[in-house]
Design a protein around this nucleic acid. Structure first.
Lengths: 129, 129
DNA sequence: CAGCATCCAGCTTGATACTG
DNA sequence: CAGTATCAAGCTGGATGCTG
């Protein structure tokens, strides 16, 4: 009967305690997703990244990069020069993740007119209250 | 020279003020992603959904569903019976989004061993402090 | 069952200031 | 340039109680 063990995955985001949930949050979080998206086009230095991800604070970017580096999605390349120069780039796994993320992002961007229309409809329907 | 206008998208998540950023957050948010993932397999009633998305509170699920419904990703089907029965299901657009999301989720789940190993390495490297 | 209203602890976030 | 440290404020989210 368990001749064909049904290839059960050891990790399941739907389970509260699964560590994959944490990683998913790093990846999809407000700044995580945009950071990965930005780095998918090529490596960037700290402040360039900060400019690209419009609205992120120094602190949040730093924090986001640490989490992504820790999870093995981003590689940090520091050159001991003066002034310091640090480049951030995606690891192969980071690129895989970023690709899917960008697919999602573009899908959403491309349908924003529909989304906005849906919102208007929704708000009008229950607009009175 | 703008014979071939380069198909510029009107929406850009990287821009702070773009409404697409809000929608992306609804979609990728902690509960948004899991809710869409759960509903991709089929419609579910409120409490079934609550059980499926392990750890979500009533309030957060309700809030998440409202946001997704407003953005046109989820359809709410209420039957005026007693006791009340409400089914939630994805719209076609919701399914498209959920598909990509699940791709991302499975990618992450499938690589968790690598992620965990990367974390250990990271923590050991700067483990001292 | 399917939810809304309220309260409030605490985590997240953004400013600001400082270091190497 | 590339960050870290600190602090206040605001939003997130859970618990509880109630409605239809």
């Amino acid at each position: 009967m368990d001749g064909i063990p049904e290839q059960e995955l050891p990790y399941d985001v739907f389970a509260k305690a699964c560590p994959s949930r944490g990683t998913l949050e790093h990846v999809t979080g407000r700044w995580g997703a945009l950071t990965l998206g930005a780095l998918h086009e090529g490596s960037l230095r700290f402040n360039a990244l900060r400019r690209r991800v419009d609205g992120v604070s120094e602190k949040m970017l730093s924090q986001t990069l640490h989490a992504l580096e820790r999870d093995g999605l981003v590689h940090r390349e520091a050159q001991p020069t003066n002034p310091p120069r640090v480049d951030y780039e995606l690891t192969p796994f980071g690129h895989e993740v970023a690709e899917r993320l960008l697919g999602l992002i573009h899908l959403v961007e491309g349908r924003m007119d529909d989304v906005l229309a849906a919102r208007t409809r929704y708000d009008e329907t229950r607009g009175g209250r």
